[in-house]
Design a binder for these strands. Structure first.
Lengths: 329, 329
DNA sequence: ATGAAAGCGCTAACAG
DNA sequence: CTGTTAGCGCTTTCAT
């Protein structure tokens, strides 16, 4: 007998709906005998509370939105994985919407979140987003927002980010320590704040050391990274190390390395910023500085929970980096 | 003025709630002038219907559940990606829950789906699931179920699957055509129905050709595949081709190939069953038979939509395979 | 063309 | 200890 309701139980037992409601919640007011009768009947009727009704009443859906450019991406995956794991403990579920890096869809999605009265939204901005007015509406609707990874340049919002600066610095220092002199550094889309932060930090370290040659290149996709690498490794003076800002770039560079049968680390060293999966699929494994989507997810959850508790001040939080020795440098 | 309601609009305009409701829906009964007034006010008040209330009333949440072992998996990703893309067109959203390959969590998750009165659930069984009684309850609750990939062995359910048989056959035939004589065939967890189907089909083709030597091995994870490959490639008589049942296995095998500096395809050929991303990251690119999570997602959606329209008979549907030449065979 | 009323399933203030 | 009542926001007969 599926889809039993409080009303049905009340009718069978000839008591009031509110008594049933309270009994099921183990309310102290209700007598033990009534409680038992109710509980038993609920059991046999396989009663399950209607979350939709509860939501309407309580004005709390216990659902978080997660908006990402695309779910087909290792980094966002592990973020989502962490968030799902974490919020489930508090009885929340996730409503995941992809923006496809399209600001118009992004706005659409926010509307869906509003209409569904989600308890909060985790958002990673699309590459194309420049105007964040649409996000103000969420504030007005009292829906807390926690931005992650691609975050707006605006102190009015809560943001959790990778420690891009720190990570890029660690990688740069590792390169210097290994006495690399002729480095190819491949970064991603220059539009992105994460690219800028990583680039600035990397450059800063490198500039302290004038004896090192660094070529800076930018690739939006794996294929571009591959052809950039191809170009550099065909020079008479091959790079003695490559820095890859992301997994996507690493994958492109490594394809070139395989194509040209370049020996790592003998002929050239490789270091990447990565979440950790891709560095492990190559031999030798790639040395990387961890930028963990998983830990970012956990941090974002912490922050979200604080928002729910009514924290007012917005902050920008960072996930620290970790150096992981592979064997490629 | 966020969170306007029909009631609020009605009060301001001094008309009834039902009129407002109708006006907003462009109901023919309502006069043009009233409609206009209502629409305008709704606009300025930034009225947005409360989906929760609508759901309660209509008993239709317009949310689908998606239950997968883990979201951190390329194949499920592309499945989810396709589903999200597709159902959005019909105004549905997704509630994704991970089972972590734990049957107990699976049951928990079903409960969450029931309580939230989702319109249907897409489910990929966990590796460990043997008893599917818990899924019967969903039927009783009138929540349609569409199983995908790891499906129960039970005709009472709707299932959409990869054409495992066909795909394995295509790969086997490609190996024969290339005159490979000493093949290492690595499959996944023997418990899984998908492993069985692929293995059976592959074996059947191979057995028709007695002059070919095939070693069958099984690996639960990438690392195991790697060490299996390692073992075989250290034999005096190296395999002249490797068949990889999945991306996970391919990744493991390729790591070994890199470690031992084996030349592909000169020294050994590689062929895989894959969704297409991983084969493309190696050089030469890996020849594979496509088993697309994306297309599976689309198919699953079609089936779900039919269920919603009240189709009674359950079916098992297959996504056809496609041969993709890489250069590794 | 519009309104009143009932109800989706649940909770909680108030009353007894 | 239990019941009555009201209401969350919306849709939909049924009247008028």
């Amino acid at each position: 007998m599926a889809n039993a309701t409080l009303k049905k139980i009340a009718q069978v037992l000839d008591i009031s709906v509110s008594t049933v409601s309270r009994a099921l919640k183990n309310h102290p007011d209700i007598s033990a005998s009534t409680k038992q009768k109710v509980m038993e009947l609920a059991e046999t009727l396989e009663y399950e509370p209607n979350a939709v009704a509860v939501n309407l009443r309580s004005k709390n859906t216990k659902v978080f939105g997660v908006m990402i450019p695309s779910i087909t991406n290792n980094f966002y995956d592990s973020f989502v994985n962490a968030v799902e794991e974490e919020v489930k403990k508090a009885g929340y579920s996730l409503m995941i919407l992809q923006s496809g890096d399209d600001p118009a869809i992004e706005i659409e999605n926010l509307k869906i979140y509003r209409q569904n009265r989600v308890s909060g939204v985790f958002v990673c901005l699309s590459k194309e987003t420049t105007n964040i007015d649409a996000f103000h509406k969420m504030k007005e609707a009292n829906i807390p927002l926690v931005f992650f990874d691609k975050v707006p340049d605006n102190d009015a919002y809560d943001r959790v980010c990778l420690a891009d600066k720190e990570a890029a610095e660690m990688a740069a220092e590792a390169l210097l320590q290994k006495k690399k002199k002729n480095i190819l550094a491949v970064f991603g889309n220059t539009q992105l704040s994460i690219t800028k932060r990583r680039l600035d930090a990397f450059k800063k370290i490198m500039q302290q050391n004038t004896s090192v040659d660094v070529a800076y290149e930018f690739a939006g996709k794996s294929e571009e990274a591959e052809s950039i690498a191809q170009r550099y490794f065909q020079l008479k003076k091959m790079p003695d190390a490559v820095f890859c800002m992301s997994d996507e770039i690493l994958v492109g560079v490594m394809k070139c390395i395989q194509r040209l049968h370049i020996n790592v680390p003998a002929q050239t060293g490789i270091i990447a910023l990565s979440d950790g999966y891709f560095p492990g699929i190559y031999y030798p494994e790639i040395t990387y500085v961890e930028t963990s989507g998983y830990r970012l997810g956990k941090l974002a959850c912490e922050r979200m929970m604080e928002c729910l508790k009514g924290k007012e001040e917005t902050t920008e939080l960072f996930v620290s980096s970790r150096f992981a020795e592979g064997g490629s440098l």
